[in-house]
């Protein structure tokens, strides 16, 4: 009888063992969301988990139950093979405790200011300037000269590269550098007569003074100068066209990078530009300014303001 029981025990163990081995081999993936209450972060997480098609554990740092010490314990207990970090808070925590692991990030403004390792991958938060210009042209084929205000401290390199790229597209970028935010109105007045539109870029100097920014929009409005920008919120200020990043694509792109890392595939670019765009067009203003636009491009516009 005893022998019979022992045989069953061995058989049972043999049945369970290969299964547990397989379970051990399944890579562990953890998602750390800096704040799942932010719609774009939430969508990126949903698309990531939906696209990766593997079991994923997710935590939301905005949930009060997740204190730093608890996250630290979780990271060491779980010791995931790959972490997807949404937002800078999530990235900094993952990098601090398990920088030896593969980390994929997204939704980090100016990611270059953060520490990285050879195992850091990600999707940057801004569209490539060439993509933005292509889409400006797609909606407004007649735009030839675009004004840009920028600070030499933060964006001289960007301006140089963008000017070169724009020439290849037959667009002329008319740039005015500023040393402080207050100079932007004068700089705008100087460049106004020569341009078809103003391209408002995420320059920290331009963005630091909200009142000044409002004045800038008003100055453009009074001269019926279209403002193209990079963030949805500028539509309320009076931007005519906003070309920004498509949040769901960011999540899918991050999942693609994660899948390639986990399958030991090659990654062409460790930190990639976002592949999807989100366009808002103020059609009411387009008509008010008497601008010609490409009607066929309306299918590419995600939101029309009328």
């Amino acid at each position: 009888m005893k022998l019979h029981r022992f045989t069953w025990l061995i058989a049972g163990l043999l049945l369970i063992y290969p299964g547990s081995l397989a379970a051990d081999k399944e890579p562990k993936v953890l998602v750390i969301n800096s704040d799942a209450g932010i719609e774009k972060y939430k969508v990126a997480q949903e698309e990531f988990t939906g696209t990766l098609s593997r079991p994923v554990r997710a935590i939301n740092l905005d949930d009060p139950k997740w204190k730093i010490a608890d996250v630290e314990n979780l990271l060491y207990d779980e010791y995931p093979d790959l972490v997807y970090c949404i937002g800078s808070k999530a990235y900094l925590i993952a990098h601090r405790f398990i920088s030896e692991k593969d980390i994929v990030f997204s939704s980090i403004v100016n990611w270059q200011r953060f520490p990285v390792t050879g195992k850091t991958y990600g999707v940057s938060v801004e569209l490539h300037s060439g993509i933005q210009m292509t889409l400006f042209r797609y909606i407004f084929p007649k735009v030839k000269k675009i004004g840009v205000l920028y600070s030499t401290k933060y964006n001289s390199e960007w301006f140089k590269n963008t000017s070169t790229e724009s020439k290849e597209m037959g667009i002329e970028i008319v740039g005015k550098s500023i040393a402080e935010s207050k100079q932007s109105i004068d700089a705008l007045r100087e460049s106004l007569p020569a341009v078809d539109a103003l391209w408002l870029i995420p320059d920290p100097l331009l963005m630091e003074d909200k009142d000044n920014l409002m004045k800038l929009f008003k100055a453009c409005e009074s001269r019926k100068l279209p403002v193209f920008s990079y963030h949805d919120s500028f539509i309320d200020y009076g931007a005519l066209l906003v070309v920004s990043v498509d949040a769901p694509t960011i999540g899918r792109q991050a999942a693609g990078i994660a899948a390639e890392i986990l399958s030991d595939g090659t990654i062409d670019e460790k930190v990639q530009y976002p592949a999807g765009s989100h366009i808002i067009l103020n059609l009411k203003k387009v008509k008010e300014y008497g601008l010609q636009y490409n009607e066929a491009a309306l299918s590419a516009v995600n939101q029309i303001v009328e």
Partner: peptide
């Protein structure tokens, strides 16, 4: 990689995302 528009797909190749 599913992108929102056909033009995005082309630019993904052009700018190295696919």
């Amino acid at each position: 990689l599913t992108v929102p528009k056909d033009i995005d797909a082309l630019m993904s190749v052009g700018f190295g995302m696919a």
